[in-house]
């Protein structure tokens, strides 16, 4: 460690330190640590939080089929056809599937979560800000429901997770048997083939979860009320609500996805931090300045 005696008074304090210290034996270590810390913090910042409040579902009472038809003609008909019959391109690819018989639940889910209208046809219909008001969505749902009978929007009591007889644990068992294979046991979502994804289930309204099971949006299979009845679905929703609201007892949740993020943390924070301590342990404490040395 060389002590420079000539004081250069150019540049700011920070610049001087940088200039002087960049040849320091620990400079590389310091840079590495800064990078590691930045990565760790950035990772934590970008790992989506698992808790978000569940809004209250509102069910519109009115069924303004005519208003819905007009909204549909403007917003949906270019892909799904004026009467929801669907559009198939000349080469046989489906531009928009037929909506005859998909029911009000389907519209409420697709439009209510912002998946529809889609910006462009693609493998995945991503969630976007909702484009319509609740009344408009209800109107369009009423219009589509009028084309042919289909799944209805669930009522409030079907979603009441506080009701008597609701069994969170049974909901968990049903969830792990029927849903966790795609959505992950803590509802964090997962990869499907060729760019499709099973979405995260955190922060999703109970109504939309119910509708998704009922209608099987996009690649998701249908779980109708015949084989996964109303009680089963309510239990599943109660389980998801419970674990979404549950704090992480062990500290930071780091995404609740298990080993991959745990491995990253063990390396970046664990080994990174311990090496930083090791680097400090082997340093000698500050040397005496030459003036003091001669005086002693």
């Amino acid at each position: 460690m060389s002590r420079s005696s000539s004081g250069r008074r150019t540049g700011g304090w920070f610049g001087r330190v940088l200039t002087r210290r960049r040849r320091h034996p620990l400079a590389a270590v310091t840079v590495l640590l800064v990078v590691l810390l930045t990565c760790g913090t950035a990772y934590a910042a970008f790992t989506p939080s698992t808790q978000s409040p569940l809004g209250q579902a509102t069910v519109s009472q009115s069924t303004q089929i005519e208003e819905g038809r007009q909204l549909f003609a403007i917003g949906c008909a270019s892909c799904h056809g004026l009467n929801g019959e669907g559009e198939i391109r000349d080469d046989g690819t489906v531009l928009g599937p037929s909506l005859v018989g998909v029911g009000a639940a389907s519209v409420d889910f697709q439009v209510g979560t912002g998946r529809m209208p889609m910006a462009a046809p693609g493998a995945q219909a991503p969630v976007k800000p909702v484009a319509y008001s609740d009344e408009q969505i209800a109107a369009m749902a009423a219009f589509v429901a009028s084309l042919a009978p289909g799944p209805e929007i669930p009522t409030d009591d079907m979603l009441d997770t506080e009701a008597e007889g609701v069994d969170i644990a049974r909901g968990g068992l049903l969830f792990r048997t029927n849903c966790a294979q795609c959505h992950n046991t803590s509802g964090q979502g997962g990869a499907l083939t060729y760019g499709q994804e099973a979405p995260r289930l955190t922060g999703v309204e109970p109504k939309h979860i119910y509708e998704a099971m009922l209608t099987g949006p996009q690649a998701m299979p249908v779980f109708n009320d015949e084989l996964l009845d109303e009680d089963d679905k309510r239990d599943i929703i109660a389980f998801l609500t419970a674990i979404n609201e549950q704090p992480d007892p062990g500290g930071l949740g780091i995404g609740r996805v298990g080993p991959v993020s745990e491995g990253l943390w063990a390396w970046l924070v664990g080994i990174g931090g311990l090496i930083a301590f090791a680097a400090w342990v082997v340093t000698r404490s500050a040397a005496a300045r030459s003036a003091e040395r001669s005086s002693s």
Partner: peptide, 15 residues
């Protein structure tokens, strides 16, 4: 300290 602050292997989720 890591164990106090960062959750690891939350197997109550996994079932």
């Amino acid at each position: 300290l890591m164990s106090a602050l960062i959750q690891v292997n939350p197997l109550w989720f996994y079932g």
